[in-house]
Amino acid sequence: MLLIDCPYCGPRNGSEFAWQGVPSPRPDPASTTPLEWRRYLYEEDNLAGWVEERWKHRSGCRAYLIIERHTATNEIRAVRLLGGTPL
């Protein structure tokens, strides 16, 4: 069970959080092409190492967080609010 230090709530069990993977930027809907759009929908870097992922504190404050996690060890070295909203 991961321990995630939510900037609002403090350390909580990982099961309170929903994993959303490494976000990719949404292409401009006006000018996007099928190929670009489907890369956005489906392709993944799927790195083994440090990644910046988006999680949601779903059973807690419901804030969206950016978490730096090592995907081979599950070590977490940083947690911050999405968009860096001040507390």
Binding site: P23, R26, K56
Partner: peptide, 10 residues
């Protein structure tokens, strides 16, 4: 969740 996500991320 989905509505919250649109609002928070986009």
């Amino acid at each position: 969740d989905w509505l919250e996500e649109w609002l928070a991320t986009a």
